[in-house]
Computed example of a mutant assay.
Amino acid sequence: MRALTVVPLQPGSAEVRDVPDPPPGDGRLLVEGLALGVCGTDREIAAGEYGWAPPGRDRLVLGHESLGRVREAPAGSGFAPGDLVVGIVRRPDPRPCPACAHGEFDMCRNGEYTERGIKELDGYGSQLWSVEPQFAVALDAGLAETGVLLEPASVVAKAWDQVERVGARSYFAPERVLVTGAGPIGLLAALLGVQRGLDVHVLDRAEAGPKARAAGALGATYHSGPVAETAERLRPDVIIEATGAPPVVLDAIAGTAAYGVTCLTGVSSSGHRIPVDLGRANRSLVLENDVVVGSVNANPRHYTAAAQALAAADPAWLASLITRRVPLERFAEALESRPDDIKVVLTLGS
C-alpha cells in the first residue's frame, strides 16, 4: 500500500512510498483510508521541527486527522464492515500515570504517551490502516465527505468541556463567546458555541473570504479588528483562543468580562518576545475571578461529543470548511499553506 512517510527531524524527507499492509487477525479493525486532514502539526513535522519515529525505525507514517471505512472487524468489536470510522490519536503511557490509568490520557502527566502520526506510532496517512476497537470512533454515515473534521472537532469539544468544568466552580451562565482565529479549530469552536445557544463572535486577520463567509453562514458575527478593542466592546464571558499568536493570546487573557474563562488551544512557536505587564494581568485575573486554561488533544468522550456535534451540523457548512482536496501523490501541495485555506485534505484512495 502507499503511505505518506517522513524521517522526523529531517527537513524535506516527506515521501509517498510503499509500506507493508497491516498484519491481519491481530484483534484490530482493518480500515480503508479515505481521507487525511492536514494541519500545522503535520507541516512542522515535515519541516523537520519535531516528531518521533516508531522504535527501531527511521520513518514515520504521517497523519493524525483520519477518516476511513472498516473492511474487517473482529467479532464482538462493536464495528462491522462498511462502518465509517476515525482513529483516536493519543495512547496512554505504559506505566501508566494516574491520569492515563483513569482513562484521561489526554491529560498525561509524565509525557510518556504515544500519538499516531506524531510520536512513536505510525499515523493514518496510508491507504490501509488498523486500529484497536477501543480507539476507534464510529461516525454517522452522512459524514462520509466531512468526517475527517472529527479530530479537530474533538479538540474543541474538549476545550468547551474544560470551559464548562472551570465555570461550574460557581454560578456560570455564559451568554457571549469570542473565538480568536478562523481556521478549522476556531470555526469548529464557533460551531459548538452556536449549538450551545450562545452569541458567537469570530475574529481573524482576514477581512473577507472563505473564513468570513463560513462564520456568517454559521450565524456568528465576524470581526477583523484588533483583539483588545473587539473584546472591550463585546465583553465576552468566554474566549477561545485558536491562533497561538503571542499578542493575541495576551489580549485574549485580558479580554473577558468578570468571572470569565479564556481557553487557549493555539500552540505558540518559541522565540517570540513581547513586553508584558504581568502586574496588570495578575490584578485583572485576581480581582475579576478570571481563569485561563490550556487545552490540547482529546480522549474518547470528547471524540464522541464531537461526532454528535458534526452529525447535528449543516452538511453544506461542514463541506465549506474543506477548501482543498489533494490526491496523496501530490502531498507537497497539501503541505503548502495558502491564504484562503481553511482545511486541506489528502484523498487516500488508490
Results as ranks from 00 to 15, higher is better:
G40Y: 03
D26F: 08
L67P: 15
G56A: 13
R43A: 07
E72T: 04
H64W: 13
V19P: 00
G25K: 00
N110L: 10
P55V: 02
P74L: 06
P20S: 04
A53C: 06
D122A: 00
G63I: 00
A46E: 09
A46K: 03
P20K: 01
E104A: 13
T114S: 15
E112V: 08
A53Q: 09
I45E: 05
V19C: 04
A80M: 13
G48T: 02
L84D: 12
A101I: 02
Q127V: 04
C39Y: 01
R71V: 15
Y113D: 11
G111F: 03
D83K: 01
G123M: 01
G56D: 10
P23H: 00
T114M: 12
G87C: 03
T41H: 01
A46G: 03
S126M: 03
G78Q: 02
R28N: 15
E44W: 00
G78C: 10
Q134W: 13
G63N: 07
V89N: 05
L34F: 09
R109I: 09
L84C: 08
K119Q: 10
E65Y: 08
G33R: 02
G111S: 11
L29R: 04
P55F: 01
A35V: 07
C97M: 13
V70I: 13
M107L: 15
V131D: 04
Y113E: 09
E49Y: 09
P54G: 10
L67G: 12
G117F: 08
G125Q: 04
A75Q: 05
V131I: 14
L29Y: 03
G63E: 11
V70M: 15
S66A: 15
G82S: 08
D58M: 12
H64Y: 12
G51R: 00
G48W: 00
A75N: 02
G33V: 06
S77M: 05
K119G: 07
F79P: 02
S66D: 12
V61N: 04
I118N: 08
L67D: 06
C100D: 12
P54M: 11
A99D: 07
S126A: 14
L84E: 11
G63P: 13
A35R: 14
P54E: 12
L34R: 10
G27C: 11
A99S: 09
L30E: 15
A46I: 07
L128G: 07
T41R: 02
G123R: 02
P54W: 06
L128R: 08
E104G: 13
A80K: 05
G37A: 00
G103T: 07
E65G: 06
G48E: 05
R28I: 11
E49P: 13
L62N: 06
